[in-house]
């Protein structure tokens, strides 16, 4: 009974964090940017035709989708309470994990829209002057060696634990998890390399804001790596000790931590009051 109640609490927390708290933070942030940086004064911020109107429409759509997901989530939670997850532990796990994917979809949509916006900004650049920092960007300028060491140690701990559970065999479920983890870390390595050494994603970004963006991305990947290793260790222990009824709860907590350390870190590292919006002014009006 207690495990079921804990699962409800975790699911309620997941709804609050992924479908209310962070969507509200993001929506407030977008509202602030649109209200205080109109296209008339900051034309480079809106590279699309009728960009300000489109941004406002996008904000309304984002609020609508996240609210809709929240309502569906509340209904699912109430239904689960009414029927006490009568469909079984594995179905509860699938429900929590599947719903989390639906909850993060609006954030991915925002991220893709942002990339499209930057790509349009790049296409619209008219200035013939280009600037660069004459300072090499090194990984540990952005990452704490302690956090990095923790991430590596946890990853190694999990890999040893995984091999132990699989009887040091190179086949089976353990290898699938190992492969997924490997792909995730290769993706992180490419992502970090891209933001550090690749082309500026946002062409108008000031040097200081770019540093903030890189710091956010680097910290983000480290935190997600730590949480993923920890989660897999906990999940492995749950399966090892046949505590299947805690699976759904652990997955829910995992997603909430990912949101806090992933989306939360990016928002904390890129505070609106620190960002330089003057770079989006018209060149003739820029100071």
């Amino acid at each position: 009974m207690i495990d079921t109640i804990l699962t409800y609490i975790a699911l309620a927390g997941q709804l609050y964090v992924l479908s209310y708290y962070y969507p509200k933070l993001l929506a407030d942030r977008m509202s602030y940017v649109i209200d205080n940086h109109p296209a008339s004064e900051f034309p480079k911020l809106y590279p699309f035709k009728n960009g300000e109107e489109k941004a406002k429409e996008g904000l309304v759509q984002f609020k609508f989708i996240t609210t809709l997901i929240l309502i569906i989530g509340i209904l699912l939670l109430l239904d689960s309470i009414a029927f006490q997850f009568s469909f079984g532990d594995s179905a509860a796990t699938a429900l929590v994990a599947g719903f989390a994917l639906i909850q993060i979809a609006p954030f991915i949509w925002i991220e893709i829209s942002e990339l499209k916006q930057y790509s349009m900004m790049r296409a619209k650049i008219k200035t013939s002057k280009r600037t660069a920092d004459l300072k090499p960007r090194k990984y540990f300028d952005y990452a704490s060696p302690v956090t990095f060491s923790i991430a590596v140690l946890l990853l190694i701990t999990y890999l040893i634990f995984n091999f132990y559970r699989n009887g040091f065999s190179l086949v089976g479920d353990g290898m699938i998890t190992f492969g997924a983890l490997l792909i995730m870390h290769i993706f992180f390595a490419f992502l970090v390399y891209w933001v550090m050494r690749g082309q500026k994603i946002n062409p108008h970004l000031s040097a200081e804001d770019r540093d903030r963006h890189i710091t956010g991305t680097v910290k983000n990947t480290l935190y997600v790596s730590i949480i993923a290793s920890l989660f897999l260790l906990v999940f492995g222990l749950i399966q090892h000790y046949d505590l299947d009824h805690y699976e759904a709860m652990s997955i829910s907590i995992y997603w909430q931590l990912i949101a806090h350390l992933g989306i939360g870190t990016m928002l904390r590292e890129n505070k609106l009051e620190d960002l330089n919006f003057d770079v989006y002014r018209d060149d003739t009006a820029a100071s």
């Binding site: 280009r130 300072k135 960007r137 082309q199």
Partner: peptide, 25 residues
């Protein structure tokens, strides 16, 4: 930059790829 003393002997410079990407060259 060297003559104005902004960068001096021993200071590291960005890699070719980093500078080329930053300047879109």
């Amino acid at each position: 930059a060297v003559l104005s003393g902004v960068i001096s002997a021993g200071d590291p410079l960005p890699s070719i790829r980093q500078l080329a990407n930053d300047l879109d060259l």
